[in-house]
Amino acid sequence: MTNQSPLVTTEWLQEHLEDPKVRIIDATTFLMPSTEEGRPYDVKSGKEAYEEGHIPGAVYGDIAGELADSNSASAFTVPSEEQFKEAIERLGVSDDTHVVVYDQIAVVGTNISASDWASRLWWHLRFEGFENVSILEGGFRKWKHEGRNVETGTNEYPKGNVTIARNTELLATKEDVKRATTDSNTVLLNCLSPADFSGEKNTYGRPGHIPTSHNVFFASLNDDETFKVREEQQLRDIFEPTGALDSSKKVIAYCGGGIAATWNAFVLYLLGKKDVAVYDGSMTEWAGDSSLPLHTK
């Protein structure tokens, strides 16, 4: 019997490495500074990094490839149910398995310890109706820091068989966000840096944030020295002013491309807010539509 907590420790995972019902997935992906004008970043697969070193037994989950819609104008967009089902079953996921997801780094060139690539797959699995999924607290960096075993090469699990039943309330579209800007019962959370939020930094072609948004930088929710999520009261103090903890309000989180926003959604889940929606297109889609407003105050 496996632990179904949404956040598992390195100690717990060490004890369950041989559990036949546990599926460990390395979701590492890299965002690199783009050399092309008008592009905020270039996406690089983390498969090579996975092959060079990963938690024993882990398989690689390609968030930017097999687990995304390759026909979308935006990276990481949710694919069809059929594509997701086929891809996740190849990773060994079945209805009776417990998935543990981790990643190796949040943002290249930073010390941010939030596991937002892991939370993207955590959110995506829940969107598809699969709830028995956890994130490894501290990810691969904490695992290595503690001197735990690392292996190289690749792994495979037996092909799985998973039931897909999409929970559509966890996904927000551009139209949903438009409505939210005039709806006092919906909280919009911008999960990017304060500089991105204020427009001081113009990453997505047009500066600023979606009107009525509140800013909670995804990187502020972790202690970068311990690699752990901050204490519950600290987290509540961060989110309380935004209204996101109000049980009567809907929350839609967004960022640049629907990745960092899933970390805020995950942390809010830990605080009991289990229905946070993620705007998949996020600022990449919104800022790319010149008819849509952005505020810098």
Results as ranks from 00 to 15, higher is better:
residue 178 K to D: 02
residue 211 P to E: 09
residue 100 V to C: 05
residue 235 L to F: 03
residue 58 A to K: 03
residue 207 P to L: 02
residue 188 L to W: 00
residue 174 K to P: 06
residue 166 R to I: 01
residue 107 V to S: 00
residue 241 P to K: 04
residue 199 G to K: 09
residue 32 M to F: 08
residue 141 R to E: 14
residue 173 T to D: 09
residue 158 P to Q: 07
residue 37 E to V: 14
residue 44 K to N: 06
residue 168 T to N: 14
residue 128 E to S: 14
residue 184 S to Q: 09
residue 181 T to W: 04
residue 236 R to I: 15
residue 203 T to E: 10
residue 72 S to Q: 00
residue 102 Y to E: 03
residue 140 F to H: 12
residue 128 E to L: 13
residue 9 T to H: 05
residue 81 E to W: 07
residue 297 K to E: 12
residue 78 V to F: 14
residue 145 H to I: 00
residue 100 V to P: 07
residue 192 L to C: 12
residue 288 G to S: 08
residue 87 A to K: 05
residue 228 K to M: 09
residue 65 G to E: 00
residue 296 T to P: 11
residue 136 L to I: 04
residue 243 G to T: 07
residue 129 G to Q: 02
residue 201 K to L: 08
residue 43 V to I: 14
residue 285 E to T: 10
residue 214 H to Y: 03
residue 174 K to G: 00
residue 156 E to P: 04
residue 68 A to L: 10
residue 233 Q to G: 02
residue 271 L to G: 09
residue 253 A to H: 08
residue 206 R to P: 06
residue 272 G to F: 05
residue 60 Y to M: 04
residue 236 R to W: 04
residue 251 V to I: 07
residue 154 T to R: 13
residue 216 V to G: 06
residue 51 E to T: 13
residue 40 P to D: 08
residue 195 A to R: 10
residue 193 S to N: 06
residue 293 P to A: 12
residue 246 D to I: 08
residue 297 K to V: 00
residue 282 S to L: 03
residue 177 V to P: 12
residue 121 L to C: 06
residue 60 Y to G: 11
residue 15 E to R: 13
residue 66 E to W: 04
residue 267 V to W: 02
residue 171 L to E: 10
residue 281 G to A: 10
residue 209 H to G: 06
residue 94 S to E: 01
residue 239 F to P: 12
residue 229 V to Q: 11
residue 83 Q to M: 11
residue 136 L to M: 08
residue 3 N to H: 06
residue 158 P to Y: 04
residue 172 A to W: 05
residue 279 Y to F: 15
residue 133 V to S: 07
residue 279 Y to V: 10
residue 270 L to K: 07
residue 196 D to G: 08
residue 258 G to K: 10
residue 73 A to Q: 13
residue 186 T to Q: 11
residue 269 Y to T: 14
residue 287 A to G: 11
residue 260 A to L: 02
residue 276 V to D: 01
residue 145 H to L: 06
residue 141 R to M: 10
residue 87 A to G: 08
residue 8 V to M: 08
residue 27 A to I: 06
residue 85 K to A: 11
residue 82 E to Y: 00
residue 169 E to Q: 15
residue 124 H to C: 01
residue 271 L to A: 09
residue 227 F to T: 04
residue 41 Y to A: 14
residue 152 T to W: 01
residue 118 A to G: 15
